[in-house]
Design a protein around this nucleic acid. Structure first.
Length: 789
DNA sequence: AGCGGTGTCATTTTT
DNA sequence: TGACACCGCT
């Protein structure tokens, strides 16, 4: 087979350039996967490279699987010549299990039988350390603590670094949490997702034999979605590339949207500097979208400064203009979308449509609207099979059977099903295990042997111990399916669900049956229980989400890599998209802009952008007036088709003006929280002597009869040209410096940090953390505070 | 041990 | 609004 046939010149070059470092900048819809798969097939068939000497790394199992299948298809299905295609994480697990023995020198307690902690288990560890340290959520959301720790780990920071760099008591406490978190993972011989990468890097760095072995074996290395790699993935790549530098990275800096998760866009921007003599090939011909869509998206992303620069072109027709709908409120926006979809589907029932949004909560109103039209839809994302409680429970039993010292598994199922082991008992075991630095299982055994527990607890725990010990003896060496089936009976888990008459319990039983099926299949492949568990930990979706549903609802993040003939990109409003939390810095805004680009380029034929003049953020809360997203102003006017009834031209001049003024306001940087739009907006109306817009009325026939677009208060709200500066200089912003986070001095308690502020001005109530004195709630006017920072 | 009331807080989430 | 943690009651 000729692997170059049907490729454009740049694609061909990317396929045949196999030696030396190569960066393939693959724009959206430029045939990236085609190039990658053809390149591998070319290496194997035309250049005689054995499959095992090629390692391709992707981010998702789905991508890995598809890529492998496609290469095999090109090669005519000879499995023996298949290249190695795997995700970063599963590659690392295999590496560590196979070659990780010497890691024990670097990581005390490490054995190749380690367990993997997923997000839930990481959270559980964080909560344990909170309990052990007597911290509560007010200190910091556990999820926030986890994400900061994870971020730190990916930057190679240690708890000591955290401590050293701590600017306030909060950060030094976080350092302690970090330290304990790491210690707990080590005592449990557990690795979190970050560790899989970090420890693989350490292993390759320190174990010369292992590194040389891999360097010898991997002749050609390929990294997909390179713009999303983080620091340790980068280091891993360098180590695997060895001295040969036959490394091909494929990516698109304009689609880097996971910076918040530690992805480092500099990796792709600096590739040419990192690898001297690197060749760069740009794939700029787009085969997906119409010219109008492509030009619109390109114009938006062109505003970014952190990019290599590409200009996508297409041979396709201009197509229709990009629809722009300005809704009165979110409900009206949802109805517009549902109505338009309804008409599209009536005309063509096979039409595939996607509705994309920035945040999940937006899906609710769209769903409601679609239900009103009686249209079936599917929401993509959400809970995956292996994240379900019942699956995790029974897998925890399996883990505990294999390794009793897995304390996470232990505390997960110790009282599931209920066997009379309560909070108090469990706390006792936990404290004992903490103070003696032993596993929960060992702690339980020691306590049982000491025979000092209350009779009830003693009986319950010893029953549990006997059950697990018997299971361990009887089930050793059996197929995974049999072990799981036996555990379901033995532990009473199945009985518990059978007794429960609720439909949920029925669904859970079915899920467990599905798990048993998966186990049988694993047995047929000759997998061990450990491999089976690895798979469960690393596979996000049981089977891919690719339903054939004609209406898909999903976040833009989830839409990456997908394409649809018709796309609605909704909620194009400031503070929502770009998200309020991204307003703080230009680089965050740039990531939002890339996200916008990703969303727009999902569309093949027809793209609709929409925004709502007012929107409730939280169900019953007040409707907040919104400003159109700056990204709307960045789409050239001539490409837009205004769809709002009664409006002939899109008001992009307004958007542009707003954007301009807002930029200026931001440069005058006022310090308070910028996302408190409620305050800003009411202030704005006060200043202008206008009543704030009333919450949206329930309209009996809300669509397609749109409300008059210029209903007075809303029109005022939509003229934000003056709103931003007004808010910036408003007296409400004047505080006495006692903002949250400020360091203050109290005559008695000394230095402290303000954690919370209720109320304003002199009546403000402050919650302050004074190291050594704990939290104090004080009235600002009585406290006699002085501001230090 | 388990239930129900109350208070609090809200991005995105490939592994 | 809705998911959740926490508290106090039984």
């Amino acid at each position: 087979m000729d692997f170059l046939a049907g490729l454009n010149p740049q694609q061909r070059e990317a396929v045949v350039t196999v030696d030396g470092p190569l960066l393939i900048l693959a724009g959206a819809g430029s045939g990236k996967t085609r190039v990658i798969t053809h390149r591998m097939a070319h290496l194997i068939q035309d250049r005689g490279i054995p499959g095992y000497a090629i390692l391709a790394v992707t981010f998702t199992n789905k991508a890995a699987g598809e890529m492998k299948e496609r290469v095999l298809g090109l090669l005519g299905g000879a499995r023996s010549s298949a290249p190695n295609v795997s995700t970063f994480h599963s590659f690392c697990v295999r590496l560590l299990r196979r070659d990780g023995v010497n890691l024990a020198q670097l990581r005390p307690g490490f054995t190749t039988a380690f367990t993997i902690y997923d997000h839930d288990e990481q959270m559980a560890v964080i909560k344990q350390t909170y309990r052990a340290l007597g911290l509560d959520d007010k200190f910091m959301q556990p999820s926030a603590a986890l994400s900061r720790i994870s971020h730190g780990k990916n930057q190679k920071e240690t708890p000591q670094d955290f401590y050293k760099n701590a600017k306030d008591p909060k950060m030094s406490r976080l350092a302690v949490v970090f330290e304990q978190y790491e210690a707990r993972l080590r005592t449990n011989n557990a690795l979190d997702f970050d560790d899989l990468l970090l420890e693989s890097v350490r292993l390759l760095l320190h174990d010369d034999a292992v590194r040389m072995n891999w360097n010898q074996r991997v002749e050609y290395l390929l990294i997909d979605e390179y713009q999303d790699t983080n620091r340790s993935q980068y280091e891993l790549m360098r180590l695997l590339a060895g001295a040969r530098h036959n490394v091909c990275v494929v990516g698109d800096e304009d689609q880097s949207i996971y910076g918040w998760r530690g992805a480092n866009i500099r990796n792709i921007l600096d590739f040419e500097k990192d690898f001297r003599g690197a060749k760069v090939i740009r794939l700029e011909q787009n085969y997906r979208s119409t010219k109008n869509i492509l030009d619109g998206a390109s114009a938006v992303v062109a505003r970014n400064t952190e990019r290599m620069g590409k200009w996508l072109w297409t041979e396709a027709d201009a197509g229709e203009r990009i629809g722009l709908y300005e809704a009165w409120d979110a409900e009206n926006e949802a109805l517009f979308i549902a109505d338009t979809i309804d008409r599209l589907l009536s005309a063509n029932p096979k039409q595939q449509v996607a509705v994309l949004y920035r945040t999940n909560f937006q899906s609710r109103q769209i769903e409601e609207a679609l239900r009103r039209y009686g249209r079936a839809y599917s929401v993509v994302g959400g809970f995956s099979f292996y994240q379900r409680a019942e699956i995790k429970d029974i897998l925890a039993y399996l883990k505990l059977t294999l390794s009793p010292n897995d304390s996470m598994a232990f505390s997960r199922i110790i009282n599931t099903p209920a066997r009379g082991i309560g909070k108090t008992t469990l706390e006792g075991v936990e404290i004992f295990s903490n103070t003696n630095n032993i596993s929960m299982w060992d702690a339980m055994c020691r306590m049982l042997d000491a025979n000092q527990l209350p009779a009830r607890a003693q009986a319950a725990l010893s029953g549990f111990r006997r059950m697990m010990e018997e299971a361990r003896q009887e089930l050793a060496g059996q197929p995974v399916h049999d072990i799981l089936g036996n555990l379901l009976e033995r532990t009473g888990y199945r009985a518990m669900l059978k007794e429960d008459p609720s439909p949920e319990a029925e669904a859970r039983l079915q899920n467990l049956e599905e798990l048993l099926n998966a186990a049988s299949e694993a047995d047929e492949r000759g997998e061990t229980p450990v491999t089976f568990l690895d798979h469960a930990a690393l596979v996000a979706e049981a089977d891919s989400v690719d339903d054939v549903a004609s209406i898909s609802l999903l976040t833009i993040h989830n839409a990456k890599g997908l394409e649809f003939p018709v796309v609605f990109l909704c909620g194009m409003e400031e503070n929502l998209f770009p998200h309020s939390r991204s307003l703080a810095s230009e680089s965050l805004i740039e990531e939002e802009r890339r996200l916008c680009y990703v969303g727009m380029t999902r569309a093949r034929r027809r793209l609709y952008l929409s925004w709502a003049r007012q929107r409730r953020r939280y169900g019953g809360g007040p409707a907040e007036a919104s400003m159109p997203s700056r990204f709307l102003a960045e789409v050239p006017t001539k490409l837009l088709e205004p769809l709002t009834p009664g409006r002939q031209t899109p008001q992009v001049d307004l958007y542009a003006e707003r954007h301009h003024v807002q930029e200026a306001a931001r440069r005058n940087s006022f310090t308070g929280k910028t996302y408190n739009s409620l305050e800003n907006i009411s202030q704005f109306f006060n200043d202008r002597g206008v009543a704030a817009p009333a919450p949206a009325r329930k309209d009996p026939n809300p669509f397609p009869v749109a409300r008059p677009a210029a209903a007075a208060p809303a029109a005022a709200a939509a003229k934000p040209a003056v709103a931003a500066p007004a808010a910036a200089s408003s007296p409400a912003r004047k505080t006495r410096g006692s903002r949250v986070g400020a360091v203050v001095r109290h005559p008695k308690y000394g230095r402290g940090t303000i954690l919370r502020k209720e109320g304003d001005g002199a009546d403000a109530k402050l919650t302050i953390n004074f190291p050594g004195h704990g939290l104090k709630k004080l009235f600002e006017k009585f406290a006699g505070l002085t501001i230090e920072e």
